[in-house]
Design a protein around this nucleic acid. Sequence first.
DNA 1: GTGAAAGCGCTAACAA
DNA 2: TTGTTAGCGCTTTCAC
Lengths: 326, 326
Amino acid sequence: MARVTIKDIAQMVGVSKATVSYYLNGNTSKMSLVTKEKIRQAIEETGYQPNKIAQSLATKDTKSIGVVIADITNPFISSVMKGIHDRCQKEGYSVLFTNSDDNPMIEAENIHRLLQQNVSGILLDPIDANASSLKRLNPQKTVMIDRESQEMFVDTVVSNNIASTREFLYKMKERGYEELYFVSYPIEGISTRERRYRGFCEVVGADASRLLILGEQGSEERILDLLASSKKRLGFFTMNGPVLLDFMKIINGTVYQYPRDFGLGSYEDLDWMQVLNPSISCIRQDSYRIGQVAADHLLKKLQQDDEVMEPQRLVVASELIFRDSF
Amino acid sequence: MARVTIKDIAQMVGVSKATVSYYLNGNTSKMSLVTKEKIRQAIEETGYQPNKIAQSLATKDTKSIGVVIADITNPFISSVMKGIHDRCQKEGYSVLFTNSDDNPMIEAENIHRLLQQNVSGILLDPIDANASSLKRLNPQKTVMIDRESQEMFVDTVVSNNIASTREFLYKMKERGYEELYFVSYPIEGISTRERRYRGFCEVVGADASRLLILGEQGSEERILDLLASSKKRLGFFTMNGPVLLDFMKIINGTVYQYPRDFGLGSYEDLDWMQVLNPSISCIRQDSYRIGQVAADHLLKKLQQDDEVMEPQRLVVASELIFRDSF
DNA sequence: GTGAAAGCGCTAACAA
DNA sequence: TTGTTAGCGCTTTCAC
């Protein structure tokens, strides 16, 4: 019981494969109603399904897009993927998913494989947006997500990191938090972190002592010191959800409480932030939208035949959410 | 600058396509060293990459597996996907990812599309494992994840829901919580929920009054009542992370605190549970492992040529984690 | 040891 | 309005 092919349909109806192919592709304008109907019937009877692989080979287009995720474990990314999938689904594209596990070697391999699969385009959430290897990607067929490179070489979809952080910190300052700190993982080379920090500096100033890098020698002690000895009203802004989690682990062992002893805010809004007690004020990225916009933009680019354009930056606005943490 | 094909290589070397194809597929036993070397060189020079699509068409095997996720937004699933990807990657299979958004229609469409793409196999995290439409899937080529159907018709990888819940509740009871409640979303037809509840009943008894369904009429009041009026030591077990989150929202507005006024435990271990204060004791599913095992099993099945076997249940053990919530 | 050639299932230019 | 035909890039049987 081999699968039925276009040839079978053609024979059943008594026409050539070409005619059936035309029918399949809606190229049906000058086709007699009778043959049309006969073909329709034959297809229905047999439950015929065109073979996508064969189609791809003939058209040289796989109608698939490859997604390269830096770390699928990052809670931020699941909504992004949802957005991507929804958009692709709607346009009849399938999505090839790939996880780099925060390892540049794996990332490179993933990209390579996707290319070999002849994906129509690539959506890239890069580990290092500045990595030179990425410059080899065809900018006509790729869109970057979340992290952007120094000099943009490909369209990129990002949150408005600077502005939203600035506005948020402005609010904190307004509420009387005079001594504000930016808590983060190492910043250098990662645009999201750099830009959020930049937004912070625009309000607080570029005083390096206000930057706390978790994981660095003595950072934990530093935080505890601050809590113990600072004379002014203290506030902390964590660069994303995981940083907030780590920060909480440090605080939890102590007597210090927010918002009593210090103010707290974070980039990213994760489910649990409104359940922490007190709940966390934060900046909510529209990650679903980011995925959607990126996919949408990529698909549009793939349609238009190679008009080369300047790399674009597409910005998706984040929302400030004020709860009880400062 | 068209891509170089096998034909080009053949011409460069001065052999036929067949010979090059043999070389490519390691079918190189009776091939002269010279031609081998010449081919190797030509490939290296040109950077030739075989076209996967053409290969697939010829071999009728796409070396891809389709993944159908009930709801990609569920935090549980991202590690599963990581496990799947790691395993597939290693075997040279690509992963076609698909999100059903908890909508059976979308699920059906996703499956249909994947089949049309000629995926080698399907990994299914089903919305309703008992849905009759799923019975049409070829059990030789599919493995189910997380949720299992009443009468198993396809290999399924699950956590040891009953046993781990039983052990966990046993511990709660041991600690003096005499009045225990199972907090959940609607249970019926969803094996994970049913089985966790079964484990609960094995310790607590099948008293329906001990079952609290969030979202149902009056469930919230019921919980608050219990807290206000119960004379015995009260304990709650939430069926998964999202339920715990909802439960916390109910509690947070009140004066009641755990573990002072009631004990608390949950299925699933999510990052934030150890940061809640007090931290949450829970059952940690090895979701990475689940993904890995499922992918591994599927790939193995695909290798062995159609020996039909009884549907298997593969169980991945969960781990009990005791923290400060009871 | 290697090559010729058919074929995988479909598309699309061209002819009729 | 429909059919012929030559591919798409690769695999694989059979012959030499």
